[in-house]
Structures are given as structure tokens and as C-alpha cells.
Design a binder for these strands. Structure first.
Length: 112
DNA sequence: GTTCTTACA
DNA sequence: TGTAAGAA
């Protein structure tokens, strides 16, 4: 309340709307992280700019879609580089070139 | 004495 | 959104 100048009522309402989800301590008291505080200030700004609850929800839902897309993209890249490395190592083993002492004919990669 | 939930205006 | 009531 002190950090955001929002009333307890407002903060709890935003939580009710799923805009912030503070952790609870053993006594069921809300424990706000720095990110939670940031989120509350951001919500306050949006409201000041005339955006309503539905609009703010839409904004964060869009953020979630983007985050989800980035996550899938990252997994795809890691998989591709893994495949590239695995095939490269395998090629070096089969050709007998640059074979490291501890490497056998068959790699220990789970996918090859 | 404070926070939590639920409910009413 | 503010406030009341009862539990925690």
C-alpha cells in the first residue's frame, strides 16, 4: 500500500482478477515480491491512462502468448544445435578423425 | 492490533 | 470501491 499508493481493497481486487498473485506466508498473509510491486505500479499506470480491467487483462494475456512463443522458439533452437553437435561428433568418430581418447565408436548421446 | 474473507451498498 | 463482521 505504501509503495504503490493503492488501497488494500484495490490490491486485493487486482489479485482477484488474476493480475497479481502474491505468495502467502504460513499465516496466509500476502507476501509481495518486487515483481509483484512492479506489476501493481504498472497496473496503476494503465488505469491512469484510461485502460480498464478488461484491457489490462488483455495486455497481460498477450504478454503470456509472446512469452509462450519465445519459450517454444528457445526449445527449438536448443534442439537444433544439439542435433548439429551430435551429428558432428558422430561423423568424426565414424571417419576416425580427431577422435578423442575417451570417446568410443558409439557415442553416449541418448538420441544417436 | 493487523490481515483475511465474504458480503452489502 | 468503501466498509462491516467475524475468524485468524
Amino acid at each position: 500500500m505504501k509503495l504503490t499508493d493503492l488501497t488494500a481493497r484495490q490490491i486485493r481486487y487486482y489479485e482477484e482478477q488474476g493480475l497479481v498473485i502474491p505468495k502467502r506466508n504460513e499465516g496466509n498473509r500476502r507476501m509481495y515480491s518486487l515483481n509483484d510491486i512492479d506489476r501493481l505500479l504498472e497496473i496503476k499506470d494503465y488505469l491512469t491512462d484510461g485502460i480498464n480491467m478488461a484491457g489490462i487483462k488483455a495486455i497481460y494475456e498477450q504478454h503470456e502468448r509472446e512469452a509462450e512463443a519465445r519459450k517454444r522458439e528457445m526449445n527449438a533452437r536448443l534442439t537444433d544445435s544439439d542435433v548439429r553437435r551430435i551429428l558432428h561428433d558422430e561423423f568424426m568418430n565414424v571417419s576416425g578423425l580427431n577422435r578423442k581418447p575417451e570417446q568410443g565408436l558409439h557415442s553416449q548421446h541418448p538420441f544417436v
